[in-house]
């Protein structure tokens, strides 16, 4: 019995380790891969549960990949499982970046590398603009006024008035909570009539 539990934990750790090591390009990519591994292959998590996990991972602070693996670990083996999966998710990027940092100085002084890096920086800027446009579309398609002003206000505050980012996040979060409460209240009143 103890042995099967241990092998389950080992399998859990190895699964997230491999997923993390092979996931390029942001947190949204790891979720479908996790679903494949834990729902389809291992059958440890149900389909609906995985959707819930995704929702919580996206609504919580921090990296989606880390959040999702905490939830998977917690679900499979409680708090020890969660700690194990965090470790499994963080270790691959930690090792890779540590190795890169070792060579960073020499790497950066190399003429060829610095030209390639300069070119890639243009690529990163393009990737981020692309992501921003996709994200902005989902907001503006709803044609509501508040999100538009929040976007504009936050942009001006951060870009031109150097307002503290954390302050902007807190204010907008509270604004969102209040608006949701207000709309729900209105809906209820509307239903009562």
């Amino acid at each position: 019995m103890k042995n099967t539990k241990r092998s389950k934990l080992a399998q859990l750790f190895l699964s997230v380790f491999k997923l993390s090591a092979c996931t390029f390009g942001g947190g949204f990519v790891i979720v479908p891969l996790m679903r494949k591994r834990f729902v389809e292959e291992l059958g440890w998590i149900e389909e609906q549960e995985m959707l819930d996990i995704t929702a919580i991972a996206q609504s919580s602070p921090g990296a989606i990949a880390v959040n999702a693996s905490i939830l998977v670990g917690y679900h499979v083996a409680g708090i020890p499982g969660a700690l194990l999966t965090v470790l499994g998710t963080v270790t691959p990027p930690f090792i890779i970046i540590s190795i890169i940092s070792l060579f960073y100085q020499a790497f950066r002084e190399n003429a060829v590398v610095s030209l390639v890096m300069a070119g890639m920086l243009c690529g990163v800027a393009a990737v981020i603009f692309d992501v921003v446009i996709d994200m902005a579309k989902t907001i503006f398609q709803k044609k509501r006024v508040l999100p538009f002003f929040v976007f504009l206000g936050a942009f001006l505050a951060v870009r031109f008035f150097s307002v503290n980012i954390i302050l902007v996040i807190l204010v907008c979060g509270i604004l969102g909570a209040v608006e949701t409460q207000y709309r729900e209240k209105k809906q209820k009143e509307g239903g009562a009539k």
Partner: peptide
């Protein structure tokens, strides 16, 4: 609700 309020601001900051 918090997330919905935050999203436009987060996009603005990423921009």
């Amino acid at each position: 609700g918090v997330l919905a309020g935050l999203r436009p601001a987060v996009i603005a900051m990423i921009a």
